[in-house]
């Protein structure tokens, strides 16, 4: 027993630890015993078809819903018991647009800064600098309504980073964007991981957003099918690439479920 404790003490907490998490809506299970870990400074793709349970998992990680079964920790902080510590370390880009269309970019970002207790002058400084970095400093006082989909996403990414979180969650962040905007946003996030050591959980159903060096967590019908580097998944399934590996894993899981019924 002591040996186990000593081992645990030596392992630094992961950026995100999801342990045996299950969730149901009105007794209908949507997540079943999901466990995975994201190491600090790692880009992880949460891959799954529509309805796989990605958004529910996101809602649990950011404590919109309570974790009733299992545990979620962010840098060692339990999202339920230490939600302040955990949420303060988390930046989130939701799938649906969450900017207030009737307010300006600055007003939206300043509002977010205040929700993290950041004072006006510090917020102003950060907003100016970060918008400049995404090439939108000249749009500071434009209404969000006037922005394109890609520009709104950039603002949402800036907003998610405004309180300088070490872990960033993005739920289908490129849905509805053109190929160029998708590429730019993905490149930005990968740059953050490479240069800043940021940890990222990137949820998507688009295989072409997965890079050969990524770590993949594969969800299917609320169950974890795979968790590991792309190369391992490809090797284990005997596939040629991640797309094929994804198809093999999801099809065999669906067949197993059919047989089980």
């Amino acid at each position: 027993m002591q040996h186990v404790k000593a081992d645990k003490a030596m392992v630094p907490p992961g950026a995100l630890e999801v342990s045996a998490v299950s969730h149901a809506y009105d007794r209908k299970p949507v997540l079943s015993d999901v466990s995975f870990r994201i190491a600090a400074g790692q880009f992880t793709v949460l891959l799954g078809l529509n309805g796989a349970g990605k958004t529910t998992l996101f809602s649990l990680i950011c404590h919109l819903f309570d974790v009733r079964q299992g545990v979620i920790r962010i840098f060692g902080h339990d999202i339920v018991r230490q939600s302040k510590q955990a949420l303060g370390r988390l930046g989130i880009v939701f799938q649906a647009r969450t900017l207030d269309l009737d307010l300006s970019i600055y007003e939206n970002l300043a509002y977010h800064a205040s929700l993290h207790g950041i004072g006006r002058s510090a917020a102003k400084e950060r907003i100016g600098a970060m918008l400049a970095q995404v090439g939108m400093h000249d749009r500071l006082h434009d209404k969000v309504r006037a922005l394109s989909g890609g520009q709104m996403r950039r603002v949402e990414i800036v907003r998610a980073l405004l309180h300088r979180p070490p872990l960033l969650l993005l739920d289908e962040a490129t849905v509805g964007l053109d190929i160029q905007s998708r590429g730019e946003i993905l490149a930005t996030i990968r740059t953050l991981v490479a240069t800043e050591g940021m940890s990222v959980l990137w949820a998507t159903h688009l295989i072409d957003e997965v890079d050969a060096n990524d770590h993949v967590v594969l969800l299917h019908h609320g169950r974890l099918l795979a968790d590991g580097p792309v190369s391992d998944l490809v090797a284990v399934t005997g596939a040629e690439d991640i797309g094929q590996a994804f198809a093999v894993l999801t099809q065999s899981a669906s067949q197993a479920q059919e047989v089980g019924r």
Binding site: Q85, R164, A187, T191
Partner: peptide, 27 residues
């Protein structure tokens, strides 16, 4: 592209997130 430029992010992994009255008032 502008988006590929590096957005500087400070790591607050080790920092304690204690909110004082001032932070509550800001919020």
């Amino acid at each position: 592209s502008p988006l590929e430029s590096d957005i500087r992010v400070s790591d607050n992994r080790g920092k304690r997130l204690g909110f004082g009255l001032g932070n509550y008032l800001i919020c």
